[in-house]
Nucleic acid binder design. Structure first.
Lengths: 355, 355
DNA sequence: ATATATTGCGTTATCGATAACGCAAAGTGC
DNA sequence: GCACTTTGCGTTATCGATAACGCAATATAT
């Protein structure tokens, strides 16, 4: 492995000059710079990240702007876990990750958190711009590198990268799984409709998922009716109430139920409460929520799709670090894989997470 | 962040003593050691990995003993890719990864490769003991730490860790997917049997998968006959020949086909050649093979299960490094997640791999 | 009692990159 | 022509952990 000293000796200058050239800190002639760059390539010089890391006593501070842990059915808690895991690894190098959480249903909370983060001494931000229109203005005025997560704002100049999911595609996948689940059960007496549960909020991922689901079902099972109920509050009781109400007005059970986010666990608990006939209705939803896995294990929930929110959060921080500290070339767009979880493989995912 | 110097000053000794205590290198009294350990906990001392990495000029050499790239339908090529990726990251720290490949169908090739690796100057090995009985003897005589991949030998003292899959469980999962796929298509004229293709070799993962598949199908669809054909040679033409032969003797198409490894792509090409009626037979198999994805994309293959062989290889090397160089505590057993791949999500996986 | 071994500890050079500091030579302004 | 700035470069301390080396003070052997 070639070191800076090797380069310096080969060219006939000192390591200080080489360093200045590498970091474009001035105080060198272009002539020497060209020689150094040539020799660097020849010797295949790779900076020793340990020496760098050791010398760098400066603390790097990263800011994270994401919704409160409990919002979107605990989804952000998982993202935060990934963030904290990465933060933990990085803080051992003397870095710091500060979280500026906000209420995704409040415009003010959102902009407040963002401006706090921007005026903090963070060198880079990981932002979930759930309310792009509220946040865009502030983001355009800064020059801090930002990695966006969950929601993209492609034309933003500060957008160093985007990490997210293909929500419409995941809706299509849900549709496929649902169609497989219900194609077998041809109970003649049953009504031919599938229930779509639209969770509270107007998250655009939710509408994309539902859209994708409708699209797939429409193509594969055009005769199947799709009935939607909209929930207004992110609360288990509220969901149960809405469902109970629905059951009273509809004598026939649906052929299947699709829930566009982790509220699928609320539906599962409702169905289990109502007995076996209900619990056996095919149910497809999103996200693994710690402590709720048993409804997948016992088969009440047939399929769960997940985009590994922890992995997204973790990845976000690591990319920020790679970009700012290590100055690595990072991917501009990372679309996380769409995992299909069911009774038979849920264990293999749970064990793998925290390792 | 507390440094060794802080610890030393707090206790009233020198950093040399602290270092000797941390690494149990002797030349210190138990009394001082106790004090140092207490203060270390108090100050929450975390060694600076950069200082460590910097000081360590010694090249670490790791050996890898795995089957030839092309065996098991290219599976090992993928494992190797992960290994090389990890190796690439580590070699920038001045390490070296040497691969000792073997022919998994030859006892001699297998032991030769292993003994080469053992007599090399590798400090740790990543081994796929595909032929456990052949390899065990040699492994018991060494004291080099070994991480096993793919096949486990639980009682081996050198076994630092095992990375692998739950193959029986994956067979069950295949069974589930197959049962969903065929429960819908109730064409009256069709025979009621599912074809199981048993690939060449007596890999125990293969038999476990088939076993799991049979188990699930037997439980969910007891009336369904399961017909097995065994392939003898790992060659596309051979598979086509065996299938053609089977078709001649069986007028009716199977309700579904399960292939226990990546030879599923051979089956897919056969079905596509025979026309639409054949290509629409539900097909479930294993592994994403680069260049063959189109048979999943166009729907000839309905479901692919994968255990991310690249991730396994990558993880193996990283764990070896963590164990030997960083002296981290590593997990003794890592079971990789069972991913379900289908037309609607295959793209999300392919993009993610090399990032 | 003398020779040798062991124990317990301090001191120090080293790994490679970084950036502050210093200094001579060349350039600029009046 | 004198005072200055800028350019181009070398020198050096530093980051934290490591391990070789040295040196007393004991312990053990003969």
């Amino acid at each position: 492995m070639a070191t800076m000293k090797d380069i310096a000796e080969a060219v006939g200058v000192s390591t200080g000059t080489v360093d200045r050239i590498i970091h474009s800190r001035g105080r060198y002639s272009e002539k020497t710079a060209a020689q150094v760059r040539t020799v660097m390539k020849e010797l295949n010089y790779i900076p020793n990240i340990h020496a760098r890391g050791l010398k760098r006593t400066k603390k790097h501070i990263f800011g994270v702007v994401v919704p409160y842990r409990d919002q979107d059915g605990g989804y952000w808690r998982l993202v935060e876990e990934g963030i904290l895991k990465a933060a933990d690894e990085l803080t051992s190098f003397g870095n710091d990750v500060r979280i500026f959480p906000f209420d995704r249903y409040s415009s003010k909370s959102c902009t407040d958190a963002l401006s706090d983060a921007l005026s903090s001494d963070a060198e880079g931000l990981l932002i979930a711009p759930c309310r792009p229109d509220d946040m865009r203005g502030l983001l355009e005025q800064t020059n801090i590198p930002c990695i966006l997560i969950d929601t993209d704002i492609p034309d933003l100049t500060q957008r160093t990268a985007y990490i997210g999911q293909n929500s419409r595609q995941s809706g299509m996948l849900s549709g496929k799984l649902m169609s497989l689940l219900i194609s077998g059960k041809t109970s003649a007496g049953q009504a031919s409709y599938v229930l779509i549960v639209d969770p509270p909020g107007n998250n655009y991922h939710l509408s994309n998922r539902i859209d994708g689901f409708r699209c797939f079902m429409g193509a594969v099972m055009p005769e199947m009716k799709l009935v939607t109920i909209k929930a207004e509050v992110d609360d288990e009781h509220h969901f149960h109430g809405r469902l109970e109400e629905f059951c009273v007005n509809n004598q026939a059970l649906p052929r299947g139920i699709f829930v566009a986010d982790s509220s699928v666990y609320y539906i599962a608990s409702f169905l289990e409460k109502k007995g076996d006939e209900y619990a056996s209705v095919p149910l497809v939803g999103y996200d693994i929520i710690p402590g709720r896995e048993f409804t997948v294990e016992n088969g009440t929930i047939d399929f769960i799709l997940t985009q590994q929110p922890e992995a997204q959060g973790y990845r976000g921080i690591i990319m920020l670090y790679d970009d700012i500290v290590l100055k690595k070339e990072i991917h501009k767009e990372v679309i996380t894989p769409l995992n299909i979880i069911t009774r038979e493989n849920i264990h293999t995912f749970m064990g793998y997470m925290n390792s």
